[in-house]
Design a protein around this nucleic acid. Sequence first.
DNA 1: CTAAATTTGTGCTTTAAAACATGCTTGTCA
DNA 2: TGACAAGCATGTTTTAAAGCACAAATTTAG
Lengths: 242, 242
Amino acid sequence: MSNISLIHTMPKKTAIELKPLEKILSLWDVLTPDERQFVNNNYTVHHFKKNEVIHHEGDVPTHMMILASGRVKVTKAGVGSRSQIIRMLKEGEHFSYRSIIASDVYSTNVTAFEDSVVYMIKADIFLSILRHNNAFCYRFLEELSTDLAASDTRTVNLTQKHIRGRLAEALLLLVKNYGLEEDGATICIYLSREDLANISNMTTSNAIRTLASFSDEHIIAMDGRKLKIIDHEKLLKISKTG
Amino acid sequence: MSNISLIHTMPKKTAIELKPLEKILSLWDVLTPDERQFVNNNYTVHHFKKNEVIHHEGDVPTHMMILASGRVKVTKAGVGSRSQIIRMLKEGEHFSYRSIIASDVYSTNVTAFEDSVVYMIKADIFLSILRHNNAFCYRFLEELSTDLAASDTRTVNLTQKHIRGRLAEALLLLVKNYGLEEDGATICIYLSREDLANISNMTTSNAIRTLASFSDEHIIAMDGRKLKIIDHEKLLKISKTG
DNA sequence: CTAAATTTGTGCTTTAAAACATGCTTGTCA
DNA sequence: TGACAAGCATGTTTTAAAGCACAAATTTAG
């Protein structure tokens, strides 16, 4: 448990909320006691401030990462200066392992869009467990299978739907991913219009405009970055038909 | 080897060219002798005519499939009548296993666009090997990792590049996937303009128009569905700059 | 072997979304 | 505190690509 000490060097506020690896890693249960011990002795804790980049596209992967707290976005550089948000992660989700498995460089950028804490496990340790623990390996196989279908669906949605459909879909995705606040309407994540645009593959102007339309039509309500879903059915319909 | 008999019931021409499972399955080498025997006793051979559908989006997956001969396209229905080609497979590649692993229905359609022969292994047999043979499992993990990056790249390319860039990219992809004929220029696959459009996410008219432009600019040469790459460098440049 | 259907090719029109311009907030940090 | 940057909002212009219409060529089927 050598790295627990690392946590204790953090400001108390953060330390109190920070769950240990064994509580946060969804795959913990398939590890053998030995593996658990091994991992516990060999992970490191890293803090990232809002907007800090965790890793860059093209870099050689060194660690498998688990988001202990905060939120990060996975993006991919496109043509010119446009960047596309591929996925958004929340506490407990792991990332940056795909490139390790594929013996590839990172195919995406990962950026914290809230202050975040990341647990890192060295690539060789990760690989060694993958190669020795079949249940562990299989869990990742399942995850990648699900992600691949999601990515293909995304491709079709982003290329074929119109602006309103794409934005509606993005909003529904955020709801699914981050949930709603106690009022049962406000999306539990506050994004800039630009980020919203980069999820829905449109310009910032168009994200703003389309949000305004949705608001006029009483499909959503806005208060700065706070977005309330008023008419979930309509949003679903727009995302399907358009 | 019970299923070899099945092959012998086929027209001789096909039978002669048809490689047995052990020659076609790239993962054969990681199977144990027992597993090899087991798979050999439990695969079936299926013939599909040109344009015949092998499986539909939404169907419950029953078999892991290996393309023994011919060519198939993996598509996904989009908005309205537009369908998008996600991937194109050639002899020796396997497919339809993603949904089995993810316990999902098929997320794509698979259609033969040439007369094709498919070897099928029952889902439960496939899963049982995955769960017992770590090397086998790991191979699929690698494959899915590669495919996921490809899918994400594709998303960005299709959404952000302009028509010329998308078509150039599609042509390069075909070259990479199917290679060139002995002349070192003609792409080893003859597709309809519509299929080409569905790979590049554009209308058929635009695929035709853009091909004509490329031909005018001496980047490619056309003879019906036969496409020759004249200026590979220029094509690469167009695909990059958009 | 012809008739019908599909595929290919081209021109013209329309349209969705980008690009651009500009003003208004809000936050931030010297 | 005041100026500078970021982010939000909205109107106007431009443009890339879809949509449509139709003719020619090629396949397919009866």
